[in-house]
Nucleic acid binder design. Structure first.
Lengths: 185, 185
DNA sequence: CTCAAGGAAACTATTTAAGTTTTTTTAGTT
DNA sequence: AACTAAAAAAACTTAAATAGTTTCCTTGAG
């Protein structure tokens, strides 16, 4: 049950931020009462911490595995970016703006994580690609990663997908195509 | 003074959405008191309407001029996208999510505007480029435009620029470069 | 039928912020 | 220097929203 709560919260936080999401929303999404929700977590903030912790764990695992299993920068980048982006949109601006004010410690940890694991690690894959002559050297790798994340965040939302009749897969593929073409030599 | 208020509000709304931005914030940004703010606008909602109306006017003007003056799709796209994107981030998700709840009529008008002027008009430039064989035909033009807007929204924020020491110009150019390379044949 | 668990609803307390009013400050004029 | 009007700053009122808590109602198992 804890995991279901974290799932539901992650989904909501990623779309609406922290403040805008009420405990009633989360409970309703799960078909449980607030009372039951509070059986599992002491507070809304605790849920946010749990979301962050699980996500960080998962992404760490993913990045370690990719490092071990995939030698080439482009393939590794593809693999990593496809799996990471669907998870990190919770660290998009509304959630971060909200927790910066309301749970500053959590914000700090998320910032560090984002900086270290996302931009440096993934940016590092791109830098490797630059070295190997597979990726253009006239672009900033951090801007590249951020651009991609921004595009994903803009499009991979239930309402947008539904309204425009994009399948998740098509949308991902389109974005990735543009992006990869844009960064490769 | 009205224009200064609209400027300040647009900036804040684009970054933080509607709800999160207080009248105190806007007044403070302008170095005026709330009392003076209310001399010019009856309510916070009125300011939001004014922001929308001015922006729509400006973008309409811009799009008309580009249509008249620039024949080629790629050049027209470049011109339009550079000028439009710095303006439409106010229609990013936090602001829209907020007004959808709080000022539904405004939301509807912004949605229509966005759909018509941004995605269709600009997407139309891209479609023209597809026809003329300058742009790849295997990407969805709407996803392309949205991707670009998402990237801009992610990066062109004061805190991000400052923290990473990107100049606005460099950031814009980097993003545009990736993007153009990604969509062109 | 009874009872425990959990959903739904109601409640309390707190926070937030729009909009309004009062107090203080500032700048200009005499 | 004194006075005044305008505006900033501060304080206030009111309403809304929501976290967290408690009570009521329903459901399912034994």
């Amino acid at each position: 049950m804890k995991n279901r709560i974290i799932d539901a919260a992650e989904k909501r936080f990623s779309q609406y931020g922290f403040r805008r999401v009420t405990m009633d929303d989360i409970a309703s999404d799960l078909g449980i009462s607030k009372k039951t929700l509070y059986l599992h977590f002491k507070s809304k903030g605790d849920i946010a911490w749990a979301v962050k912790e699980r996500m960080h764990r998962d992404i760490d695992k993913l990045l370690q595995r990719a490092k071990r299993e995939i030698p080439g920068p482009i393939e590794r980048f593809k693999k990593v970016i496809a799996e990471v982006t669907s998870r990190v949109s919770v660290m998009g601006s509304a959630f971060m703006t909200d927790i910066k004010k309301e749970i500053p410690d959590l914000w700090r940890e998320c910032e560090e994580f984002r900086e270290r694991e996302i931009y440096e690690y993934i940016g590092g894959i791109l830098k490797e690609g630059v070295k190997k002559g597979k990726i253009r050297k006239d672009i900033d790798t951090k801007i590249a990663v951020m651009s991609y994340l921004g595009a994903i965040r803009m499009i991979i939302q239930p309402e947008i997908l539904m309204k425009n009749q994009f399948s998740i897969e098509d949308a991902f593929n389109n974005i990735l195509k543009i992006f990869l073409e844009g960064i490769q030599k």
